[in-house]
Every structure is written in structure tokens, then in C-alpha cells.
Simulated assay, not measured.
Amino acid sequence: MDDPESFAALFDRHADEIHRYAARRLGPEPAEDVTGEVFLVAFRRRARYDPAWSDARPWLYGIATKVVAQHRRTERRRNRAMARVGAERPGTFDDRSAERVTAQQLQPRLARALTLLNSGERDLLLLVAWTDLTYEETAIALGVPVGTVRSRLHRLRVKVRRALGGNDPFAEEPQHG
């Protein structure tokens, strides 16, 4: 981490993934800035990185989650806008049937459900759903014990399921860790 070229390799390896996470959280416009901020913070705090960690992703996602928190108003506006947008209805029965099982159909309802969560709940849920981190890596990213991740995630799934009228969009998610 002391070698700038090594840090450049870390950036090259993870910047696209952090950018995608930021874009999903805040939209494409602020994602570029957020990605830059994440790696600037990471560079400044590189001495705090625990070399015992085999993967820098949880550490970077932890930083990204905190930077996203600074951009929270943008995220709330985006979720509210997505919640107001309804999916367009295709014309045929087959198209309508296929649409019912797509994520696009669920998107406005899910966005509405996300607006009901506090920032810590939203951070946990989206880290698990979007980043492919294990529960252990999510715990590192958020700085909490893995048992806390598991119990909070269970409560969140119940809360989101209720907000969606009993449908759990995360029911098919594999159990990490």
C-alpha cells in the first residue's frame, strides 16, 4: 500500500466495480465523483488497511458506503423518482406475463420500499444484494460483527417483504457465509 504503483493496481482492479455500486446507489451522474472520492479516501487511509485481509473489496465497499452516505439526498431523490415511475405495459398476454416476473416490474415497488428504510438498513441490504460480498466481508465493510449482519438482514428481509405486499425479491438470493 506504500507503493503508488501497487495502489494504482488496486484502483485498476476495483474501480469499475465500485463505480457500478455507486451508480446503482446514486445514479450515473454522481458515480464518477463518488468513485474518485472512494479511492482518494482509500489512498489517504492506506496505512489503516489490515494486510491480514485477503481482499480489499470489503474495505473499499466500506469506504464507498460512507461516501454514498454523504450523497444521500441524491439517492433519496432518485429512489423517490423511481418509485413514481410505473413500468410500461406491453400489448400481448405473453408479454404481460413475462413482464410480471422481471425486475423492471418490481423496480418502482422496490424503490418505494427502499425509501422506507433508514440509511444503515439500506446500506446493509444493498451491499448484500448488489456487491456479491459474503456476510463476513459485509461485516468488515460496515465495521460490525457478522452476527449483526445476519440478524439485521433477517429483519430487513421481513420489512421489505411486508412493504412489497408479501413478495420477497431476495428470496432467491444465496446465503453467503
Rank of each mutant, 00 (worst) to 15 (best):
M1A: 14
D3R: 08
E5C: 01
F7Y: 12
A8T: 11
L10T: 15
L10V: 15
L10R: 14
D12Y: 06
R13S: 15
A15D: 12
E17Q: 13
I18L: 09
H19G: 10
H19I: 02
H19D: 13
R20I: 11
Y21D: 03
A22W: 05
A23D: 04
L26I: 03
L26T: 12
G27W: 02
G27Q: 04
G27H: 03
P28H: 10
P30L: 04
A31P: 05
E32T: 15
E32R: 15
E32F: 13
D33Q: 14
T35K: 10
G36N: 11
V38L: 05
V38F: 05
F39Y: 13
F39Q: 11
L40W: 10
L40Q: 13
L40A: 15
V41D: 11
V41E: 11
V41L: 12
F43R: 12
R44Y: 06
A47S: 14
Y49C: 09
Y49G: 09
Y49L: 15
Y49K: 10
P51S: 06
A52R: 12
S54Y: 00
S54L: 10
D55T: 04
A56I: 08
A56W: 08
W59C: 02
W59V: 05
L60N: 07
Y61V: 00
I63H: 08
Q70N: 12
T74L: 15
R76T: 12
R76A: 11
N79Q: 12
R80N: 06
M82Y: 01
G86R: 14
P90F: 00
P90G: 05
G91E: 14
G91W: 06
G91R: 12
F93R: 14
R96G: 03
R96D: 03
S97C: 10
S97N: 09
A98M: 07
E99H: 09
E99L: 15
E99R: 10
V101G: 12
T102P: 03
L106K: 07
L106A: 06
Q107P: 00
L110A: 05
A111F: 04
N118D: 15
N118C: 08
D123K: 06
L124K: 08
L127D: 00
L127G: 01
W130T: 05
T131K: 03
T131L: 03
L133I: 01
L133G: 02
L133E: 05
Y135Q: 14
Y135L: 13
E136Y: 07
I140T: 15
I140C: 07
I140P: 01
A141M: 04
L142F: 08
G143M: 10
G143N: 11
G143W: 06
V144G: 04
V144C: 01
V144F: 02
P145C: 05
P145L: 07
P145D: 09
P145I: 04
P145V: 07
G147Y: 12
G147Q: 15
V149P: 00
V149W: 01
V149F: 01
R150N: 04
R150K: 14
S151G: 03
S151N: 15
R152G: 05
H154S: 13
R155H: 12
L156T: 02
L156G: 00
K159F: 00
K159N: 02
R161Y: 00
R162I: 01
A163Y: 01
G165I: 03
G165W: 03
D168E: 00
P169M: 03
F170C: 05
E172N: 08
Q175I: 13
Q175D: 15
H176G: 01
